[in-house]
């Protein structure tokens, strides 16, 4: 079993970023990496009883960007997760007692082998890999997050999608008792997101189960969330309980709430402003009071990998 506890990670357990980076270099530089994956060399890396560290995941993915990750503190304190409140610091506060075990994920719809999977069995069957990705929120701020996860495409193929599978629909847990935000009709609950099948199969698209080498904190979408780095953050749905492959385009939450503001595609694009705010630049979280904004890049800097998916499409119309 991979994950043995549901405990909240205390601040004292959080690895300092410099330490984290040093550890990465150490592992890279030596055969210790192999030992580390067996939990032998670095007690803080794979201490079974603490359980907050994810042992044995691949590093140095060619899909990772070479940028300094945003501080762990900021990644875990500045969250949009309306199920736990609309304030940025609400999720860290309100998701503390969120139960992520037991947890099942249902795979349904246009697949030959539908099923309901236990989260721990699901995770142990995957090749976990670290992916350092840019994250660009539709609110014009951004972070760099070292996710740990696995390819969504490879995962979906295990269920043999049929030829009718044109889209993938994701649904978040609906549990207003645990998710106080769902008691307020800010959005239509449960939260639903979707991708076109080729977007879902793209190697950049992952399901994440961790960040900074640790089990995903509740406020970041535990136990399982989507990460699509070239799209605005709201596409990367959190705490997923159902994945349904469909023939028709799914009705997604923000699109239903304000269709002229949030499109189905939601690709990061500095040339297509949101009706109420510019998307030309972004504030990099962690830069402090006097930091300058950074120019937003088309497809969040992943144009080389994903632009071909949208060839011939009018990105102004399909925003």
């Amino acid at each position: 079993m991979l994950i043995r506890t549901k405990k909240e990670i205390p601040a004292s357990e959080v690895t300092d970023r410099s330490l984290f980076r040093r550890r990465r270099q150490l592992i890279k530089a030596s055969a210790l990496g192999a030992l580390a994956s067996f939990g032998l060399s670095f007690p803080e890396l794979a201490r079974a009883d603490a359980g907050s560290k994810l042992p044995g995941f691949g590093k140095d993915s060619p899909y990772s960007i070479n940028e300094e990750p945003t501080d762990f503190e900021d990644v875990t304190r500045y969250n949009n997760f309306y199920e736990f409140g609309t304030g940025k610091s609400d999720p860290a506060e309100n998701a503390k007692g969120f139960k992520t075990r037991p947890w099942t994920l249902a795979i349904e719809g246009e697949v030959e082998k539908p099923g309901v999977l236990d989260i721990d069995q699901l995770i142990s069957g995957q090749n976990l890999e670290e992916r350092i990705y840019r994250l660009r929120c539709v609110e014009a701020w951004s972070m760099v997050v070292p996710w740990v996860g696995f390819s969504l495409g490879g995962f979906l193929k295990q269920f043999n999608p049929t030829s009718k599978a044109k889209f993938v629909e994701f649904t978040t847990l609906f549990d207003p008792g645990q998710m106080p935000g769902q008691q307020i009709s800010v959005l239509e609950w449960p939260y639903v997101e979707g991708l076109r099948i080729d977007e879902a199969m793209h190697p950049l698209t992952i399901l994440a189960v961790g960040l900074y080498g640790e089990v995903l904190p509740n406020q970041n979408g535990a136990p399982l969330r989507l990460v699509v780095p070239w799209k605005y953050g709201f596409k990367s749905i959190k705490s997923i309980v159902r994945i349904r492959l469909t023939e028709d385009m799914p009705h997604t939450s923000w699109n239903l709430s304000a269709p002229d503001e949030y499109g189905f595609y939601a690709n990061v694009n500095p040339e297509v402003p949101h009706p109420r705010w510019s998307q030309k630049r972004e504030r990099v979280i962690g830069g402090g009071l006097f930091s300058l904004k950074r120019d937003t890049e088309l497809f969040n800097g992943y144009a080389e990998q994903v632009a071909h998916l949208y060839q011939g499409m009018d990105l102004n119309r399909n925003f």
Partner: peptide
């Protein structure tokens, strides 16, 4: 809060 850098992860937004 500004001097002590306790305005949170996005201090400009907080201000």
């Amino acid at each position: 809060d500004a001097v002590n850098e306790t305005l949170g992860p996005d201090p400009i937004e907080t201000l």
